[in-house]
């Protein structure tokens, strides 16, 4: 069941925005991609913990809900990434320097964005979740597979969108990939 004002046209235009974003990132057009971010963006990746099961929650979905595993930016704990526009600019600048050795030669990435679901509309701001699968390959290394969910707030600007908040949930239980510093 979706809110009455989520039309097929709106769904289509947001999906198109994500496909364009994915193409820019896989083409390594990070400077152009940064233009899709609002300058007041909050870009974060929570840590994920393995927790005790609370006996009092037995039988309820809340017992094993995903959100209780997360150590995000609003917690008193420590997220994996907690960034604003300045950090993203720094990462984009770095990508186009010859001594960004972790991407020299650059990783080959290919991502599929799916399960795009508009959860809420508040004025010109849309709460959207989407899933991603990303294949990551660098010479001389194993290939890596990244899966996760993005929880976004998109701002509508002149018929296009800007990413105002992105929270990225990574699904790996043990982090054994070369980097979580990608644009996801």
């Amino acid at each position: 069941m979706s809110a009455p004002n989520i039309t097929p046209e709106l769904q289509w235009s947001i999906e198109q925005f994500y496909y364009r974003e994915a193409r820019l990132l896989d083409n390594r057009q990070y400077q152009t991609w940064l233009g899709l971010c609002s300058e007041d963006i909050s870009y974060s990746m929570p840590g994920r913990n393995n927790l005790l099961v609370d006996n009092r929650e037995r039988g309820h979905e809340s017992m094993i809900e995903v959100d209780r595993e997360l150590e995000g930016i609003d917690s008193d704990g420590c997220p994996i990434r907690d960034e604003n526009y300045i950090y993203l600019m720094l990462r984009v600048e770095r990508s186009f320097k010859i001594n960004a050795w972790a991407e020299n030669p650059p990783a080959r990435t290919r991502r599929i964005i799916g399960n795009v679901e508009i959860l809420d509309i508040a004025g010109d701001e849309y709460s959207v979740v989407s899933n991603f699968h990303l294949h990551y390959s660098r010479p001389g290394a194993r290939d890596f597979f990244y899966a996760g969910q993005r929880r976004d707030r998109l701002l509508e600007v002149d018929g296009d969108y800007r990413i105002r908040r992105r929270e990225i949930l990574m699904d790996m239980a043990d982090v054994n990939v070369p980097t979580l510093g990608l644009f996801l």
């Binding site: 994996i80 950090y87 972790a102 979580l180 510093g181």
Partner: peptide, 13 residues
């Protein structure tokens, strides 16, 4: 957080 660890801008090098 954003400089070190798996998502670190610096530590990836």
């Amino acid at each position: 957080t954003s400089f070190f660890g798996p998502g670190g801008i610096l530590e990836q090098e």
